[in-house]
Design a protein around this nucleic acid. Structure first.
Length: 589
RNA sequence: GGGGUCGUAGUUCAGUUGGUUAGAACGCCGGCCUGUCACGCCGGAGGUCGCGAGUUCGAGUCUCGUCGACCCCGCCA
């Protein structure tokens, strides 16, 4: 039997009964009953029970976990009382006629089973064993189905996949670059791309029109549960398009991809401006699977008798969150709310409530019952509701309340199982002021186009200029984002000017792009989706590492290969590099 | 860069106020068992308590340092 005709162990069904088959796989488990031996033979698709008896009994007794074997046998129906309805192959078993041990396996460091919870550290060190687990293998298979569907969709829409360089030039703005020393140009470095941004725009100038790439991106920044040093984007760019075209494109993509896991997104996603998202949810990626929106308390705070809130309302913002059933929180739980909020830069949270014992709040002394009642009324808090209040710098108030909302929403079980919420967040600000360096930074990147009606304010009020940028959000996770780009070199120069990049600097950093734009740049725009996050959500996992075959740890180590590692002096010499690790790094992580 | 949690048998964990020989389950090894499917039963082996200092008559337990894993803040245009 040829390798390609051989069935998968996990694919055998009642319809195969009577077939004489050759199976290869790993011994998942052996059950030796003395006279007969059962072996669960596992491959990529699952496992099937093999029965060894008579002359094969002795051979079966010698098999152990993870041995690689070849079996020739006949698929037989199990008798009614021995059918195992818990497994897909449970109606059949393979009566072995020949068994061959192809490779004996040492006892693995952990049992290759879904329900065995080995530590992630161990799983990463022996990733090839971890991936052997059905759950992990199924995730690899799902990822393939998703990427295949994505390519199929874009191909059908007339998009062309083009590979862009991995060795490219360092760009000053944005994340920290990974650098690669250039042996042929001592003292010079390539950088790994943070994204193919500039190349996909150049492809539009070239006239490609519709570009897509499943592209690896690299950012030398701190890692998180949903972040890796290298990750994959579905990178998209198209010419002669506007926001609506991009929205329709992505909604169409999701309509094709999400049904793979039984999720049907709406035909068109709701939209929310960035300003509304912040005001109502305290987040630019709101989880809209539940309500509990932020409430405005600036007015009542301004007139109240509590100095702290009055001051916050005068110089910043005072907003709150009405927590249904929150009056039942214990003192300890209320204190924990403050502890939760503090890392976001607020001194703590205030709370207000009315219980059978009367009005309660840490600010009761200053406000009295009337003052507390005024806050509860302004927030629209009803019986049993707890009002949580934060005041201060707008950015911090939004961040703290936005995080509290998600935390409490989860804790109170406000998200209905199996529900999903897709949306577009639009009208992001184009620039953000940085107090430390006293200059504006691009919220997206310097090539994002301003909204036409705001272009006039570019120089007079940069902070108020809105961008033609958009993010697609699902269940509180940013799946992707993009923008319509500037294709006019004069407008581009004005945007650079706001960022403090003069003509000489612009020429030095992005000269090749500006040059390109002088030779006929089409209006264009695009978007990039985080493929790892997309697969993570679709697989129902909560760590990006679970959907990447060989991920790195949160300190950037590959436990399997032990990368990064030191290199020979000869290699360094060839690159004209000298290493000095005696001093700690000047800044950053 | 900052904060937090964790590190004990191959694995997942327990380990009392600092006190005799550090336990359990699974896995592993040996034996028995012809319908199991987390097979069962009997027996057995297996420990640098992450590493290094310190306190103490005595440290898995307390202190400091260090390494590693995970989570969060900053950071990630």
């Amino acid at each position: 039997m040829g390798a390609w005709e051989r069935p998968f162990c996990g694919g055998l069904r009642a319809a195969d009964v009577g077939r004489r088959v050759e199976l290869v796989g790993w011994v998942r488990r052996r059950r030796n009953l003395g006279g007969i031996v059962f072996v669960d033979l596992r491959d990529r698709e699952g496992w099937a029970q093999v029965l060894l008896r008579d002359a094969l009994r002795e051979a079966g007794e010698k098999l152990s976990q993870e041995d690689v074997i070849r079996v020739i046998g006949t698929v037989a129906a199990r008798s009614a009382d021995t059918v195992n309805s818990d497994m897909p192959t449970g109606e059949i078993e393979v009566i072995a006629e020949e068994v061959e041990l192809l490779t004996a396996a040492e006892t693995p460091p952990f049992v290759v089973e879904d329900r065995v919870n080995a530590s992630e550290e161990l799983r990463l060190r022996y990733r090839y064993l971890d991936l052997r687990r059905p759950e992990m293998m199924a995730t690899l298979v799902l990822r393939d189905q998703i990427t295949f569907a994505i390519r199929e969709y874009f191909h059908g829409m007339g998009f062309i996949e083009v590979e862009t360089p991995i060795l490219t030039r360092s760009t000053p703005e944005g994340a920290r670059d990974f650098l690669v020393p250039a042996r042929l140009a001592p003292g010079s470095f390539y950088a790994l791309p943070q994204s193919p941004q500039l190349f996909k725009q150049l492809l539009q100038v070239a006239g490609l029109g519709r570009y897509v790439q499943i592209a690896r991106c690299f950012r030398d920044e701190a890692l998180r549960a949903e972040r890796q040093l290298e990750f994959t984007q579905v990178d998209i760019e198209a010419s002669f398009v506007e926001e609506e075209d991009i929205y329709a494109l992505i909604e169409g993509l999701f309509a094709k991809v999400f049904p793979i896991v039984g999720i049907t997104p709406p035909a068109a996603f709701p939209r929310l401006s960035w300003a509304d998202a912040m005001e109502r949810f305290g987040s630019d990626k709101p989880d809209m699977r539940f309500g509990m929106e932020l409430v405005e308390l600036g007015e009542v705070a301004r007139g109240c008798a509590f100095e702290v809130l009055r001051a916050a309302a005068a110089t910043g913002r005072v907003k709150g969150l009405v927590v249904p059933g929150g009056t039942a929180f214990s003192r300890k739980q209320l204190d924990e709310l403050s502890e939760f909020a503090k890392p976001f830069g607020v001194p703590g949270v205030l709370w207000f409530r009315k219980t059978a014992d009367g009005y309660g709040s840490p600010a009761k002394k200053a406000l009295g019952d009337e003052g507390i009642a005024a806050f509860l009324a302004a927030a629209g808090a009803g019986d049993g509701d707890l009002l949580v209040v934060v005041g201060g710098v707008p950015k911090v108030v939004f961040a703290a309340l936005g995080a509290l909302r998600v935390e409490l929403g989860g804790r109170l079980g406000l998200v209905r199982q199996g529900s999903h919420a897709f949306l577009w967040v639009t009208d992001f600000p184009l620039f953000e002021w940085d107090d430390e360096t006293h200059r504006y930074y691009s919220v997206n990147h310097p090539f994002t186009a301003p909204k036409a009606q705001d272009v006039a304010n570019l120089e007079s009020d940069p902070g108020a200029v809105r961008a033609r940028a958009y993010d697609v959000v699902m269940d509180g996770v940013e799946l992707g984002g993009g923008s319509i780009r500037i294709h006019d070199s004069v407008l581009q120069q004005r945007a650079f000017a706001v960022l403090g990049i003069d003509e000489a600097q612009a020429k030095h950093r992005f000269g090749f792009l500006l040059d390109a734009f002088r030779y006929g740049a089409p209006p264009h725009g695009g978007l990039a989706l985080g493929l790892d996050r997309l697969v993570m959500l679709m697989a129902g996992r909560d760590s990006i590492r679970d959907v990447i075959a060989f991920p790195k740890t949160t300190s950037g180590n590959c436990l399997l290969t032990d990368a990064p590692n030191t290199v020979d002096d000869a290699q360094l010499e060839e690159l004209r590099l000298r290493v000095d690790v005696s001093r700690s790094a000047p800044n950053g992580s």
